[in-house]
Structure formats: structure tokens, C-alpha cells
Simulated scan of single mutants.
Amino acid sequence: MPVEPLPRFTTDRQHLPPAQRRRLTRSSSTLCPGLRTGLFRPGLRIKGLRVAPGI
């Protein structure tokens, strides 16, 4: 499944300072392969809720 950025995302990215744009590019290179395959590296998985008062 191809993942394409929405126009709003592209516009917002263009307004980021260069350092933040580089950081976003590095983060995206970690996340995007998982979006394509549905398989995420262990550090990106959502942990289950164990026990919390009131739940």
C-alpha cells in the first residue's frame, strides 16, 4: 500500500526550520517502512495497558 503525504503535511514540512526538517526525515525513514508493510520495529509498537486505577 503506497503511502503519500497529504498536501497539508507537505506545506507544514516546508515551513519547518532546517534542523527540524532533518529530524523529521530521519524519523520518517524509521516509520514509513512499517506503514507500507504493517510490521513495525519493536521500539515503535504500542504497549498494552496493564493495570490502572479506575479502568
Rank of each mutant, 00 (worst) to 15 (best):
M1N: 08
P2Q: 14
E4K: 12
E4Q: 12
E4P: 01
E4T: 13
E4L: 14
E4M: 06
L6V: 11
L6Y: 07
L6D: 14
P7H: 01
P7L: 04
R8M: 07
R8S: 11
F9C: 04
T10E: 15
T10C: 03
T10Q: 14
T10D: 09
T10N: 03
T11I: 04
T11W: 09
D12L: 15
D12W: 08
R13Q: 06
Q14Y: 04
Q14M: 10
Q14N: 11
H15K: 15
H15R: 15
L16F: 13
L16Y: 10
L16P: 00
P18K: 13
Q20F: 12
Q20S: 08
Q20P: 00
Q20K: 15
R21F: 05
R22C: 00
R22W: 05
R23A: 14
R23G: 03
L24W: 02
L24D: 01
R26I: 03
S27V: 04
S28N: 04
S28G: 12
S28C: 05
S29K: 12
T30G: 00
L31E: 03
L31P: 01
L31D: 00
P33R: 05
G34W: 06
G34A: 06
L35E: 07
L35P: 03
R36T: 13
R36P: 00
R36N: 03
R36S: 05
T37N: 06
G38T: 08
L39A: 12
L39M: 07
F40L: 13
F40W: 12
F40I: 02
R41L: 08
R41S: 12
R41T: 14
P42Q: 06
G43E: 15
G43L: 05
L44T: 01
L44R: 05
I46F: 10
K47M: 04
G48E: 09
L49I: 09
R50H: 06
V51H: 07
V51M: 02
A52Y: 06
P53T: 06
G54F: 02
I55V: 10
I55P: 00
I55W: 13
